[in-house]
């Protein structure tokens, strides 16, 4: 006999919360990508201005 606990399925409310959390995480990652992209552009522009 297995000792593992019975799996309790996520409720509709749990799933909604997890979806919203995943969405916020995706937006944060997208923000990070934009942040690095713009930083690269600014650095290139600064280097161009120095030359």
């Amino acid at each position: 006999m297995s000792d593992s606990k019975p799996v309790v399925p996520f409720s509709a409310d749990d799933l909604k919360r997890r979806r919203r959390r995943a969405l916020v995480m995706a937006l944060c990652l997208a923000g990070l990508i934009i942040l690095f992209y713009v930083s690269t552009l600014v650095k290139i522009a600064k280097m161009g201005a120095m030359q």
Binding site: R17, R18, R20, V24
Partner: peptide, 8 residues
């Protein structure tokens, strides 16, 4: 595992 974005 059930924390909302607000909890974080």
């Amino acid at each position: 595992g059930q924390g909302t974005a607000g909890d974080y």
